[in-house]
């Protein structure tokens, strides 16, 4: 079985081609999903790619959450469908309340693009199972509004339940609370990640291929489950 991974294109999505390429390189079949269509085309997992959906003019992800495709994704995610939100996708997951907290303007007030070191903190999610706990990786980071914030109780809850999946190493690039780069939901099927694993899947174009395990993780868990 070759798992089918849907990649959603919203107006203003930018990394949808990259996410589809990463899915293919990892061995999956990438399926294009359209924001205006609530049909998930029988996909086994979904990636919400990076970009500036609807120009991010209101608040990042605030309009995208109302797209017809998101109604289907929210329902399916609650039923266990694996969903990875990268950057703008993470913002959309927070706006959709599939993940707690919010992403705010970088504390530097500048958009920042750099190769970022991360530590994988949790390997129980469907998107991080192929990593080793504590593994340090290097993948691109590029965002203007990547500072993860939540109230202290929520942060403590995320930490307590092991739901912080990745943390920034070295200089915190955007003011994220507790250096959080990514989190998961309780079930472990929904992951939001601010850096961009889809840009680190080929030696030729990425700083490393450290992003690939995010995609192989979900494919392996889907194949294992079937």
């Amino acid at each position: 079985m070759i798992p089918r991974v849907g990649v959603v294109t919203f107006p203003g999505s930018l990394d949808d081609r990259d996410a589809a390429r990463a899915v293919r390189i990892a061995g999956g079949e990438a399926v294009a999903l359209w924001h205006g269509d609530d049909d998930l085309m029988k996909v086994d997992a979904v990636v919400l790619p990076g970009g500036f959906s609807y120009g991010d003019y209101l608040r990042c992800g605030a309009i995208a959450r109302f797209a017809p495709v998101m109604h289907s994704i929210v329902d399916a995610a609650k039923g266990g469908l694996p969903v990875l939100g990268i950057c703008n996708g993470f913002q959309i997951l927070c706006e959709s309340h599939l993940l707690p907290g919010a992403l705010t303007r970088n504390d530097s007030l500048h958009f920042i693009c750099r190769d970022q070191e991360l530590r994988i903190e949790d390997t129980s999610s469907m998107w991080t199972a192929d990593f080793e706990a504590g593994q340090e990786i290097l993948i691109p980071l590029k965002n203007g509004e990547g500072g993860y914030v939540a109230d202290e109780a929520t942060l403590d809850m995320l930490e307590g339940e092991g739901r912080v999946i990745a943390r920034y190493l070295g200089l915190n690039p955007n003011g994220s609370r507790r250096d959080i780069a990514g989190i998961r939901n309780e079930l472990g099927n929904v992951v939001g990640l601010m850096p961009h694993p889809e840009h680190a899947v080929e030696d030729l174009t990425g700083p490393t291929t450290d992003g690939l395990p995010f995609f192989t993780s979900v494919l392996n868990s889907l194949v294992g489950a079937s």
């Binding site: 990394d15 081609r17 990259d18 390429r21 693009c113 889809e198 080929e202």
Partner: peptide, 28 residues
């Protein structure tokens, strides 16, 4: 300057600043 620019999007950037030239893959 350049850290405020996205050099990764589209996934075909092979060389970017501070390299001598920018290089992109046209045909995958």
């Amino acid at each position: 300057v350049t850290s405020q620019y996205d050099r990764y999007v589209l996934g075909n950037t092979v060389l970017a600043q501070p390299e001598d030239a920018g290089m992109i893959r046209i045909d995958e």
